[in-house]
Design a binder for these strands. Structure first.
Lengths: 211, 211
DNA sequence: TACTATACTGACCGACCGGTCGGTCAGTTG
DNA sequence: CAACTGACCGACCGGTCGGTCAGTATAGTA
């Protein structure tokens, strides 16, 4: 048969279940979502969810691993290009932010997971992902520093912290901040990202050279 | 009687219940904590928890309001002092970070609450608090800008974003980042805070004046 | 045709949930 | 002394939880 459905890896129900679980877990957290609700969202019986994933924990870990895989794949596409340091950092930062915004459900779940929740269902997996992304950014910054594009006394890890934290902040605090009249970049991620890079490059001090 | 117990506002059980609820909610989230567990943690019967707080939702909102009150009180102490802009910003940022670290349970709860969880048990309260703190910081930065201590083309709200996000990032991602060998400020909040201010003031660009 | 493996379901289980109930007890008031 | 109050508890309620199981539907194989 030459239908458009070329391959269906395991079963037609697995993917809807994973999508429903990712949506509900990210919206309400692990404990607040029941297997019955996931089955309803995926138009499948609760028993079938258990049939495919065994336990609630296994389903959750599968969801997290799927998010991590998608996230790293998206990030790999950003490693190409040989332009100068400033524009490359801008591309990386913009891509990182848009990556977060694109699948906000997954990002929400990973942030939940990386927080101090001691239960740690998938905590170490999230930690590994964030660590990898962070190291990659630090390496990029260090390269720019050795090439002379970045002042020598700046700490690459500190710069990476400022960049990543700015993006995470945009994602999960901007809905709260947006209504303040002092903020005019709430609805434009690209503008925000560019502003972050610009502010970070030029610094905020009034005197041009103090030493 | 002139005991040391001068006044006990309502009951001897209310405070332990609130403390237990704040601890458990921040560690595991709203849905993952049962009223029975809160009672056990507070060494009180579950029925007594309901006696004092009515419902689980009311207890949760009480906990959040208590955190918000404590947070704003701690922040009020930072508004004094008339030193120059740089050191004042340093003081504010350092105080903000230490404030978060001091009652990390409350901060954890507020961050959970301000995230995209659509349920919104105490979301608007958390949003109000974050908005107030943010506005206060923007005002401080604007004052420094008008006084000439800050370059005129910088956006105060953007600078505030960078500062607040850096602190939040330290709080909830540093346990994950700390193990990377590129990071050497993980266990010293003061050093981190000073580094953030320093990097932000001087900028990261190599050329001293590009215009 | 019969056999087998897998997807799938409704019915069901014990445990626990948020919340309520009747009732005990110490302290206060008159 | 009785009357009353609020803190407090064990027992219980209807309902939902994660998880199991017997049985059906379906497709491939021989």
């Amino acid at each position: 048969m030459d239908n458009s459905t070329i391959q269906q890896p395991v079963s037609s129900a697995v993917e809807p279940i994973l999508a429903a679980a990712e949506k509900l877990f990210s919206e309400h957290g692990f404990a607040a979502v029941s297997m019955r609700e996931i089955g309803i969202e995926a138009r499948v019986s609760k028993a079938n969810v258990f049939h495919h994933f065994g336990t609630k924990d296994k389903l959750y870990k599968t969801v997290i691993q799927r998010i991590i895989r998608a996230s790293t794949e998206l990030l790999d596409e950003l490693d190409n290009g040989e332009d100068n340091f400033h524009s490359r950092l801008l591309r990386f930062n913009n891509g990182h932010l848009n990556n977060i915004l694109k699948n906000s459900q997954g990002a929400c779940l990973l942030i939940q997971e990386s927080m101090a929740l001691r239960s740690g269902h998938g905590q170490q997996m999230a930690a590994e992902l964030l660590g990898n992304q962070f190291n990659r950014l630090v390496k990029l910054i260090s390269m720019g520093q050795k090439a002379g594009d970045l002042r020598a006394d700046a700490d690459p890890a500190m710069v990476a912290c400022l960049l990543v934290s700015a993006n995470l902040f945009f994602f999960d605090a901007m809905p709260v901040i947006a209504h303040l009249d002092s903020v005019n970049f709430a609805d434009d991620p690209d503008k925000y990202s560019a502003g972050v890079i610009d502010t970070l490059f030029k610094g905020i001090s009034a005197q041009e050279s103090e030493q």
